[in-house]
Design a protein around this nucleic acid. Structure first.
Lengths: 103, 103
DNA sequence: GCGTCACATAAGTCTGTGCTTATCTGTCGC
DNA sequence: GCGACAGATAAGCACAGACTTATGTGACGC
């Protein structure tokens, strides 16, 4: 089910974390910089993103580097592709995206 | 914010309602057929989907026909397009990625 | 070994949300 | 008008989830 993915993305804090990770891999402490959020809260958010398949971790000593997991985005893309009949055709970005998903 | 869209899709009942509407427009009573759900619950789900921009209504006498709103899907598409860099271009690439994750 | 750092987990609290039953609004056939 | 129907709204309840503080786990420098 896609519940876990959509539920993970429903939280604005988690979306902003994901956005940061899309720029480049980071550890949990770096992700907290600039946001007023406790360490356990961040850890819990990352756990939700990870179990949704949107993010994956790469251990590095006592640090844990997080990065975007393309499979999570692919799952959303596959879900979206089911409703391609309703896509507005004039938006070029979406057309390109569709072409990628076809392959 | 995309919170309302993702939150709306996080519920499996609402996703199945949306899926039904993707096949064709229906009124609330038709949507209830085959699902064990009360009339107010369905009405509330439709309100959530509508305020998220995923569905729109077309009044027809005492019936209300619901249909997929393409703008909702477009919003998801635009969000997804921001992370195009992480999209696996081909299924083969996706397979390799998955294998890499296994180490 | 020992203290410190990076992060995860536990337990409790508070808010949000999905359900229920009951009731209201508006439209139809007669 | 009146009863029946389609649907929305109200109020209450139970559970999920996002946060907190406190503690646990494992890796590092000395």
């Amino acid at each position: 089910m896609e519940s876990d993915i959509f539920r993970a993305l429903a939280d604005p804090t988690r979306r902003s974390v994901f956005e940061k990770l899309a720029v480049g891999a980071m550890n949990a402490s770096d992700l907290r910089r600039g946001i007023a959020i406790s360490q356990p809260a961040m850890s819990q958010h990352l756990a939700v993103l990870r179990s949704a398949g949107l993010v994956r971790e790469r251990r590095d000593g006592r640090f844990v580097n997080y990065e975007v997991d393309p499979e999570g985005l692919a799952r959303i893309g596959r879900w979206l592709a089911r409703y391609r009949a309703y896509w507005p055709r004039r938006i070029d970005d979406l057309k390109t995206l569709l072409k990628d998903m076809d392959q």
